[in-house]
Design a protein around this nucleic acid. Structure first.
Lengths: 228, 228
DNA sequence: TCGCGCGGTTGACCTGGGTCAAAGCCGTAG
DNA sequence: CTACGGCTTTGACCCAGGTCAACCGCGCGA
């Protein structure tokens, strides 16, 4: 299989291109590179210029801010099927965050020029982009909401409830497999690792959850939702 | 002057439409209503469905989150020439924030349908929208950065430095006229009014600024920038 | 097998900023 | 002029969450 075909196939499977015709996908594929990164590699630093946007085929990428005091803050964790960096592409500014893989990852990089060309004569694509940016924006709004008017415990509960797999329908039990290390989740939730650990401990003490490594069993979904 | 002409004229003067042709503007004007609000009026509540987006001709609008405990959090203050609500338009979700005027305001409301129609055959317009959303997104990222890794004092300083008018070029003095009440600014910066007041007091005590009602004189721009 | 390193946990202590309460400080409508 | 209501400030106190430091436990490479 030729590399370009593989790229087209990858693109076609991504949500962003689900309404895009094969010919259009082929055009985009012309400006797309396949990238392979090992865990912990840096995709770009804050301040780097932006040449396009990224799509995750498999693996995980964290977007984070770093302050001069060495304290980092994870803004977002990007998983398979998701994209990042579109917004930066449309401004004349450098990246405001850095990006680093959390596990070995396969990414696609779509160049700025082909995106701009596609916008020019493909309204579907524009709509998809607008939808994607809007979704990200909403996510950030709810992050701001969480950071400003919810306690650490409430943020942790919110995080667990978002990803919970309910065991039986209408059941009061559930389970979450944490997809990433606890330190990363803590930072994502604006907590120190210590504080995160303590919150989990406290929830355990109250019989709401049971933690075993990365596996979190929700013992009382009802009470967890009602937590004030 | 016919109302539609007035609408077209308003639209033509807004940044969002600066690259848009008169015919296109006229089309958009078909789906645009002029709205007048007195200070303190509610434009929409959190949870309301979204029928289009808003543009501010004159006046000020705050976008804010309200929690059940009655504590509100101002997400953004929108001034003349700026728009809001575009992102919500592209999702099937209701407004995540509420909007309220901070002063008597003249707004335009552009209906969803005319925006979607325009996207269909006007790539310039799509690009403008993408640019606008991207700018908003960047703003939110830097808000998140400020909230998570900067102290209250640093956020206040950042706010002052963003809007400062330097008296003489290369001067070490400057001045800021606060455009809105201190309580609103405090909330915008994720501070209580009390804390905000104390910070200003502290900066005054250190000889960095002088506060007189809504007028803030920056006495030592140098040292204020270097504040750690 | 051992040792080392990293991610996570625990404990003790501290502080930035929130809370509650009361007192100015205007501007405006009587 | 006066009184009332909305901001803003001040003071006293408190607590969620951060900091510093030690420790644990598991996986991995030599």
């Amino acid at each position: 299989m030729k590399p370009e075909l593989k790229v087209s196939a990858f693109l076609a499977n991504l949500p962003l291109f689900k309404e895009t015709s094969p010919e259009q996908i082929d055009r985009v594929a012309q400006g797309t590179r396949v990238l392979h990164f090992a865990r912990g590699e840096m995709l770009f630093h804050r301040g780097d210029p932006c040449e396009g946007f990224h799509l995750v085929v498999y693996g995980q990428v964290k977007l984070a801010l770093s302050s001069q005091q060495g304290a980092d803050k994870v803004v977002e964790v990007i998983g398979p099927g998701m994209s990042f960096g579109e917004a930066v592409m449309f401004l004349e500014k450098p990246y405001p965050v850095y990006a680093q893989t959390l596990s070995d990852s396969l990414l696609l990089h779509v160049s700025k020029s082909v995106v701009f060309a596609e916008i020019e004569h493909n309204p579907q694509f524009s709509r998809q982009l607008l939808g994607g940016l809007s979704r990200r924006l909403h996510g950030l709004i709810s992050d701001v909401e969480a950071y400003s008017l919810r306690s650490g415990t409430q943020r942790v509960i919110g995080y667990l409830l978002r990803d919970v797999q309910v065991s039986e329908p209408q059941g009061n039990q559930g389970e979450v497999m944490l997809p990433i290390g606890k330190g990363v989740i803590a930072s994502r939730l604006n907590l120190t690792p210590q504080h995160f650990s303590r919150i989990l401990h406290e929830l355990t003490a109250q019989g709401l959850v049971a933690v075993d490594g990365r596996r979190v069993v929700i013992a009382d979904l009802e009470r967890l939702r009602a937590y004030d």
